[in-house]
Design a protein around this nucleic acid. Structure first.
Length: 411
RNA sequence: GUGGGCGUAGCUCAGCUGGUAGAGCACUCGGUUGUGGUCCGAGAUGUCGCGGGUUCGAGCCCCGUCGUUCACC
């Protein structure tokens, strides 16, 4: 009746990996799946048709960005995000909770994925010129676009996300970093728990008030940083949470995750969450990390990495990643990756891409993004196939053997 | 012809009263994990136009010379 469901079709014998199908009002997603990010209702520089052609099954946008521009009421009037952007397929929206962090403590400074920069007693910046301030009721933002002040509460995030109309929404949470103190993590986690209840309540109210609209699923977000007890507690609490007669349709695993502990942390969370519900690993998408995520039971992923690095010339291949701007590729007339079946690789050479990047041509971003998104989407597709065929472990070993090997070389 | 300015990294230029050269861009190579087409990091690069001179020491001072540019005849 809701139009939303998740079915697990096959489980891996050697790990927690599983293959399934996520059904939404706008179409299905075969899992595990990589969901490309189109923050502002567009995958930067790439046509929706191209995204479909390269195998994308859904697109993830951001409620904070769409709220500021063009405004959720416009998305609502347009018939929802999927139709507005001419994607006409399944969509996700992030709640804007992540922006509490990214705008709050200085963009790109705190999501330390590398343990070498980790310092346990570093306190979150509470004095700097932050664009966001958190309190128990919500978050006050200063727009990065024009400096105007805005306020997000769990209720407001739900209202915005309902207007945007994505098939899968995320609860409004407070994302912390590895730099927060343990005591702050506890405070933030409790706040996220209380906000989750408010999200469920408001979500249920809006679902009933807007019953003529397609059903939108709501995923709760699990925080807890690197602490086992906090992660397990958050997962079991959120997994069992019920309010206004409803529970979460699925879950997102969020927060800053130490790369070397990624699998361990997801593993704790996965053990506590209901097995039958879909799990989305927020913001993770490096090839080697995707194997860890799938192996730990994650069903969907989103990440800006593939498209962001593509815009500055870095591309993935089965042998590792490299930069197309390197001098060596000026006269290299082979494709980015001989084994890739994407539009870019079947039509263009490294030399041409090198030229486009050096000339700062817009097409460079388009072609490189198509390739990288195809590479990641296909990689996760291959994992799904492997799970179904019972040889996930072999795929992982084979891929990582080659990929890491190449990464240690200069070109 | 006369007078003045300028000639320093590939480009645009900094170099205080002389102590054996720097920046930005470009270039080379990394990085970017719920996206501010950004940003960050590392690196390479010079007969300081040329030739003399003064000085312990000259990109800086003096003489000459070449080039360039402006003004005036």
């Amino acid at each position: 009746m809701s139009g939303f469901s998740f079915e697990i079709s096959k489980s891996d014998s050697g790990s927690d990996a599983r293959a399934g199908v996520l059904t939404t009002p706008h179409g299905t997603v075969n899992t595990p799946a990589f969901i490309p990010v189109g923050t502002k209702a567009t995958v930067k520089s790439v046509l929706p048709e191209s995204m479909r052609e390269l195998g994308a099954q859904a697109i993830l946008s951001n409620a904070y960005h769409l709220y500021l521009q063009p405004g959720p009421e416009i998305l609502d009037s347009a018939g929802g995000l999927s139709k507005f952007m001419n994607w006409n397929g399944p969509t996700f929206t992030d709640s804007g909770g992540f922006q509490v962090l990214s705008l709050g403590v200085g963009f790109k400074k705190v999501l330390a994925m590398d343990e070498t920069t980790f310092r346990d007693d570093d306190v979150i910046a509470e004095n700097k010129e932050r664009l966001a301030h958190v309190d128990d009721d919500g978050v006050t933002f200063k727009s990065h676009l024009d400096g105007s002040m805005h306020r997000f509460t769990p209720e407001f995030s739900m209202q915005v996300q309902h207007q945007i109309g994505a098939d899968i929404m995320f609860a409004f949470d407070e994302c912390t970093t590895l730099h927060n103190t343990r005591s702050y993590q506890e405070i933030a986690l409790e706040r996220t728990r209380l906000w989750a209840i408010r999200c469920l309540d408001e979500h249920q109210r809006l679902t009933q008030a807007r019953s003529s609209k397609p059903y939108q699923a709501l995923f709760g977000v699990i925080q807890g940083a690197q602490y086992e007890d906090l992660r397990r507690q958050a997962a079991s609490t959120m997994g069992a949470m019920e309010s206004s007669g409803i529970s979460f349709d699925g879950f997102g695993i969020g927060g800053a995750l130490n790369k070397s502990e990624l699998g361990t942390i997801i593993g704790w969370v996965n053990q506590e969450l209901p097995r039958e519900k879909p799990k989305h690993l927020l913001g993770i998408g490096a090839p080697e990390d995707l194997f860890v995520g799938v192996e730990a039971g994650m069903d969907t992923f989103d990440c800006v990495l593939a498209s962001r690095i593509a815009r500055t010339s870095a591309v993935y291949t089965m042998e590792g990643r490299y930069n197309l701007t390197n001098t060596a590729y000026r006269t290299d007339f082979s494709p980015i990756d001989e084994e890739c079946d994407c539009y870019t690789c079947t039509s263009y050479t490294r030399a041409y891409l090198n030229h486009l990047f050096r000339g700062k041509e817009i097409l460079a971003a388009t072609l490189a993004t198509i390739h990288n998104e195809r590479f990641i989407v296909r990689l996760v597709d291959q994992m799904r196939t492997a799970i179904i065929n019972g040889d996930f472990a072999e795929l992982k070993e084979e891929f990582l053997g080659r990929y890491k090997h190449r990464s240690t070389h200069a070109n």
